[in-house]
Nucleic acid binder design. Structure first.
Lengths: 123, 123
DNA sequence: CTCCTAATGCAAATGCAGTCGCATTTGCAT
DNA sequence: ATGCAAATGCGACTGCATTTGCATTAGGAG
């Protein structure tokens, strides 16, 4: 990642603009509004680079598969609206890890996925 | 699912005996201790049948991919030991869904994945 | 402005979970 | 004991996310 390219900017801008995790495909579509020629392979190559550089994080959503989000976010949960299929970043942590951890185990990390309807879709 | 076959029994017994969610591949390996000829396609066909009958549940683990578990379990979390790579069913729920849900949203369901080391591996 | 090489676009290729067609086996009702 | 449809085993095949080979384009140091 030594040169700055319009496609890499477009990918990062798309991620920042959306403010929510997206699939590689959605991300490609969104970034194409900036760079129309943007190719899938380029997106994947840049995602790999950006993940390596600690700027992007890849997660696997149990219902939606692989999603990409900016890495400079504090710990948060993910809410999947089953109507509009968007995933929202929910700041904060409502899990009591001490209670969640069985005796003798040590929990280093965790993920929480919420499912339901977002405010827009309930309107 | 009208006839009882040794392979279907082997699959269910493997799931019961292990007491934890497993990949189709691990499940096949385990069930083969009962029915050596057991084929992958048969495992998948039976899993589909059993899921349709509400006896088995399929889940996608963010780090381990698709796993299968018995469906007659109460709500629980999943603990992934990163040393032995086993997934444990953790009974109970240490998530406060009211706190976890943003204003205006409605949460119908959720999943919690814990990561760390199990009691055996910490020994 | 030039040149070197990183980065891109394209299309073909991977790897993996799961599925399908078909010949053969096997529950189980009669 | 018989027969038929369900179930199995096998190997080839899908679909999807991602990767790779290669020719071309384009940052940016000099």
């Amino acid at each position: 990642m030594q040169r700055k390219t319009s496609q890499r900017n477009a990918i990062l801008d798309a991620l920042r603009g959306a403010g929510r995790p997206m699939s590689a495909e959605d991300l490609t579509g969104l970034a194409r509004t900036s760079v129309a020629s943007l190719n899938r392979a380029t997106v994947y190559r840049n995602l790999r680079l950006l993940i390596g550089a600690g700027r992007v994080r890849r997660l696997t959503h149990p219902e939606l598969g692989p999603l990409y989000e900016l890495a400079d976010l504090d710990h948060h949960h993910h809410f999947h609206c089953r109507l509009c299929d968007r995933v929202f970043e929910i700041p904060g942590c409502a899990l009591d890890v001490r209670i969640a951890t069985p005796p003798g185990f040590r929990t280093d990390d965790h993920e929480v996925f919420l499912y339901g309807n977002c405010a827009d879709c309930r309107g």
